[in-house]
Write a protein that binds this DNA or RNA. Structure first.
Lengths: 121, 121
DNA sequence: AGGATAGGTGACCGAATGGTCACATGTCAA
DNA sequence: TTGACATGTGACCATTCGGTCACCTATCCT
């Protein structure tokens, strides 16, 4: 008999993770949870220019992908950010031996952008 | 007058990166380049069940996203994996103070899966 | 109890995406 | 120079995706 861990369930399907990250609204939701964890649907909706139904649909995809974990509290549903799938993406294509080079490039990039700030989505 | 670095051009639009990663064929291309870097279009096509045109279209998106860098050599075009955008995704949602916890969770997951191997896409 | 509030379901439509093909350009090698 | 090879372009079609709405269920509070 094998024991099935909750973590295995959280990060089951990689395709769901990448599909979930492909939408800017869903990335904004992750950003919001990164700043303040455990928000409800209504709280998250108030920060976006979208209907509640749209936000709900996006949160559903994030939850299916394991990027967001939820906990019910009375009639409210709290949403929490789960960093594990993101870390797995990193580990997939970043070689441990070349990770130093990547870090060095990013440091250089930050150095250059300090003089020339650039707008991002 | 400001100097525009090549690195800034490589990682310009985050949306292109996530859209590029959202397709399983494009992820397979990155996997192939991770194993053997600098492959041509024809080499990459031979590993996939798809027309040359389809593969070309996918490589175009990966290049626009900065995930793949190319170099022409005669009539051939060599493709190289660029890890910088992946590292940026990681840094966005992995807090440096909680990174240890994430690593610990993944170690535990690996421990559990050693007894119970699971198939992935 | 009963109204207000938080969350959920299924259908629907316009827009974007994945994949293929006919055709075109540039390069090597005999 | 001529034919073979590697790569590129634009149009086209089936499918998927993002967002909204009408309608429904569950919980809280007076």
């Amino acid at each position: 008999m094998t024991i099935r861990s909750p973590i295995l369930i959280l990060v089951n399907d990689e395709d769901l993770v990448f599909k979930a990250l492909a939408d800017p609204t869903r990335r904004a939701l992750l950003d919001s949870l990164f700043v303040r964890d455990g928000q409800t649907l209504t709280q998250l909706e108030s920060e976006l220019e979208m209907t509640r139904f749209g936000v709900m649909k996006h949160l559903r995809l994030l939850e299916d992908a394991g990027l967001v974990v939820t906990r019910r509290q009375g009639r409210e549903k709290l949403h929490f950010l789960n960093p594990v799938p993101i870390r797995l993406i990193h580990d997939r294509w970043i070689d441990k031996y070349t990770e130093g080079h990547t870090r060095a490039l990013l440091d250089l990039k930050a150095e250059l952008e300090r003089d020339e700030p650039e707008d991002r989505t």
